[in-house]
Amino acid sequence: MVKLGDVAIHGYGGYIPRYRIKAEEIGRIWGQDKSGFPVTEKTVAGIDEDAATMAVEAARTALRRAGIDPRKIGAIYVGSESKPYAVKPTGTIVAEAIGATPTKLAADLEFACKAGSEAIAIIAGLVRSGQIEYGLAIGADAAQGRPGDALEYTAASGAAAFIIGKPDHGAVAEIEAWSGYATDTPDFWRRPSDKYPMHTARFTGEPAYFKHIIGAVKSLLENDGYSLSEIDYFVFHQPNVKFPLAVAKYLKVGQEKVSPGLIANLVGNTYSACSLLGLVNVLDQAQPGQRILLASYGSGAGSDAFVIRVLDGILEKRDLAPRLAELIEDKIYVDYSTYLKLRDEILMR
C-alpha cells in the first residue's frame, strides 16, 4: 500500500464508439446458443477509429471537464494493447490533437488490460514529485478477438482519460491510496506478428484474474485500514459480467456498490479502458465525500487498486461534457458482416 495524497483528478472522460454488435449476432455465425453469453452486446470501433482516435476523444472530454490550459500537461501516457503503431508513440498524437505540444513525456504503456491504470500510477508519481504540473493518463483499446474464439463476444473498443494534478479548488476527486500486485502468470498474451491474442481459458480465472485483483484490494484494505463500509463504490476489471460479481461476492461487497461501475454487459471488455470506464461511470453519479475503490487487472499478470475520494468539484465539472450513459444509449447495431468491415477483417490488399 502506498499513501498517495496530494494527487487529484481534475478532469475525466470516457469514450465508446457508436457501433454495437449483439453477442447473439456473433453466436448466430458460430452456431452458439442464444443464452449464456458473457455480455449482451459490445462496442465496435468504426472503420476510421483506433486506440489513438479514441484516446483523443476521451482526452478531449477530460480536458473540457478539467478546464485547464492543455499546454500545462507535462506527461501523456497511453496504455493500450492495440496501439496503431508498433513503433511511434500514441501519446504524441494525443498531445497534438488536444493542443498540448510540446509536452515533456509521452510514452505508450502495455500491460494487457491494466496499462491504463498503471499510467495513472505513473502520472500520480510525477505530479507528487513536482516534475509536472498536470499529467494525462489514458487507457484505450480497439480490442482484438479471434473470429470464433470466446474473446470475440467481449473484445470491445473504448477509451478513458484522466487529467491528474495537485488537489486545488475544482478538483473532482482525490487519489488517496494505491496498491499494486504483479507476478509472472501467463494467462493471455499476443506475439508481435499475431493479430489476435492467445489465452488459456479457465487458467485466466482463479490463478490469474481473481488472485491478482484480490491481492491488490486486500493489500489496500488490510494495510491501509480502509473498511468495506468506508467504500461507497467498487469498480473491478470486467472482462465479462460474472468475474467482477464473483470478486464482490468473495469480498462480501453488496451488489449495489458494484452495479454503478459495472458496464461490461452493454459495452463489453474494452481492455485497457475497461475498469477505467467503470470508474468514469461512477464519477458520473457519485457525490462529494464518497469513496471509490478501483481495481484493474492486466493479464500476465497484475492489478492496480486505488482508493479515490470524490471532491466538491465534481458537481460543477460533471456536466461540462456528456455522461458515459449517454454514449452507451446512443448506438447503432451492426450485423456480423458490417462488423468485419468496420474491424478491417476483410482482406483488401
Binding site: 468504426g46 476510421d48 477509429e49 483506433d50 482516435t53 483523443v56 476523444e57 496503431p84 490533437a97
Partner: peptide, 17 residues
Amino acid sequence: AVFRRIRVNGDQGIIEY
C-alpha cells in the same frame, strides 16, 4: 468534430489522422 483516421496508406505507411 471528432478525431479519426483519414488515410491509412497500407500496412507500412503512416496513418494520417
